[in-house]
Amino acid sequence: MPDPGIILAILVATLRAATPLVLAGLGELVTERSGVLNLGIEGMMLVGAAVGFMATVVTGNPALGMIAAMLAGAAMALVFGFLTLSLLANQVATGLALTIFGIGLSALLGVDYQSHPITGLATVISPHLSEASPAVQQLLLIDPLVMVAVVAPFLVHWYLTRARGGLVLRAVGESHDVAFALGYPVIRIRYFAVMFGGAMSGLAGSYLSLAYTPMWTENMVAGRGWIALALVVFSTWKPIMLALGALLFGFVTIAQFQVEALGIDIPPQLLATLPYLATIAVLVLISRDTTRTKLNAPAALGRSFHPST
């Protein structure tokens, strides 16, 4: 029987590992539900991580850091929106360019901040963290951003299925021509969705640089933006499924370490592939009904809209 301390540690670690995926994934989900495919998540997360970290170092206040990260992510998304929504550039190419741009820009911005160690969010909130007993330590590691990641999927779900704004946003994503004919400002709604996606990616990035590993180093997002993107598709654009997928991915990643630390005899190469295999397997099961998946996919995803066409 594993000791309850370890079970608690696994649960908390799973939540923490899933948090950036949930935050960035929800942002992308809303963006895609409005019919826009933004492949720039990784780049926006990196810029959010760098700017959030810099703002925290300068102001000493992680809350301001998070706000700055959201603004930075939204600003990156605004560039993407201007190119794809106003200038009708190809969304796939522009999104990829945004990622590459974000990698470079974050490295440039953060170059003087690499050697600034800061206090992690959990320790800022409870300064005596390192002296607490292990169980209390675990509970204190559930910081406000983790709580946001727990609540946000339900809010986004509610917004997309119950709120008027969310229903309009989905209508825009299903058929921009019809939505436009009904008198909805398609482009404006898409700008809103794209910038929401950017702000959430920025917030996810700041979780990494302020709470998860309180530091800034180049490329620290290490591919989580792409995993968030994959989760959106595999979850068939459903916020709660997305959160479950992220939790599963986080859990299997953590479980791998636990299994190794317990000394159970499984090759490490196999264990390292498990998070991907398990997530794919479960999400394929979720989305095995192709008709429903097609119904869920925003029909206008990735298509440019201009009132004259």
């Binding site: 670690a13 590992a17 950036p20 990494l208 290490a222 989580r224 990643t253 370490f257 630390a261």
Partner: peptide, 11 residues
């Protein structure tokens, strides 16, 4: 991968 290294150390 700072995130993974962190999770591994925590474990």
């Amino acid at each position: 991968d700072p995130g993974k290294e962190r999770a591994a150390a925590d474990t």
